[in-house]
């Protein structure tokens, strides 16, 4: 019991890297005003060097919400779909889904985003749908790879122990495939953070906004502020996933 507590503390201790990035991200979104001096050096010609149309915290919140929502749906649908096509009832669809997941990843995310707009209009909805669709692919592919990569002997043993198909899925297949699935989720979320920023061009307000308006108005300082925050967000998310992956691998 006490050993468990110690291990818990140990694994918590490893979280300092993502937490440090998160702290930096939040500090910068709150205290961008402190950087006014350096920014003025970069952009001496403009009257405003600080992006003030919306607070950075609100933009960050929007960004995280859109990516979070799309990624959550993508995980549910992706893992669910991949599990469904590896069951006996859905096995007919397995070759098609496998092919689709690999062909789909050739599609550039920007193109998918651009195609969502004619279909769904401007605003946040097409971005969520585009991120969801694109984010599905790595998750489906990795879940399939994870489940199919399990040694058939393990399956046989689980069945021999009298486990039901549901138990095999929950207690054997998913835990064994978890590291691979998590790697897929990581890829998916990383792409989504980046693609969501481009969503600012189709009318979503998020951290891409300062960049787009900076480019349009020729204001490098705006661009820098947006770029810094998006970069920090991406690094925070990625380092958190790295941590998570290590834990899952250790538990497996």
């Amino acid at each position: 019991m006490s050993g468990d507590v110690v291990r818990q503390r140990h694994s918590l201790a490893g979280w300092w890297v993502p937490l440090a990035w998160l702290a930096l991200l939040l500090a910068l979104s709150l205290g961008m005003g402190l950087l006014e001096g350096p920014l003025r050096v970069i952009e001496p010609d403009s009257r405003d060097v600080l992006y003030v149309r919306a607070s950075f915290l609100a933009l960050l919140g929007q960004h995280v919400m859109v990516v979070g929502l799309a990624s959550l749906l993508a995980v549910l649908l992706g893992v669910g779909g991949a599990v469904a096509v590896t069951r006996p009832a859905g096995r007919d669809f397995l070759p098609l889904v496998t092919q689709l997941a690999s062909i789909g990843q050739t599609f550039p995310p920007v193109a998918v985003l651009a195609l969502a707009v004619p279909a769904l209009g401007f605003g946040t909805l097409p971005i969520v749908v585009a991120l969801l669709l694109y984010g599905l692919l790595p998750i489906v592919r990795n879940t399939l790879a994870g489940i199919q990569g399990i040694d058939p002997g393990v399956h046989e043993a689980a069945r021999g122990m009298g486990m039901t198909p549901g138990q095999i899925l929950r207690q054997v297949e998913l835990p064994l495939a978890a590291p691979v699935i998590l790697a897929g989720v990581r890829t998916s979320v990383t792409i989504n953070v980046a693609t969501a920023a481009i969503g600012a061009t189709v009318g979503a307000s998020n951290l891409g906004d300062p960049i787009i308006s900076g480019i349009v108005n020729g204001n490098t300082a705006y661009v820098l502020q947006g770029a810094l925050l998006i970069g920090l967000l991406a690094i925070t998310v990625d380092s958190a996933f790295e941590r998570l992956q290590r834990r899952v691998v250790r538990q497996g």
Binding site: A194, A197, I211, T220, V223, G226, A227, G231, D238
Partner: peptide, 17 residues
């Protein structure tokens, strides 16, 4: 690996200045 994490739009922006 670090570079690959940075979203493209941000990297373009950071190279601008």
């Amino acid at each position: 690996n670090f570079l690959q994490t940075i979203p493209s739009i941000a990297l373009f922006g950071l190279l601008l200045a």
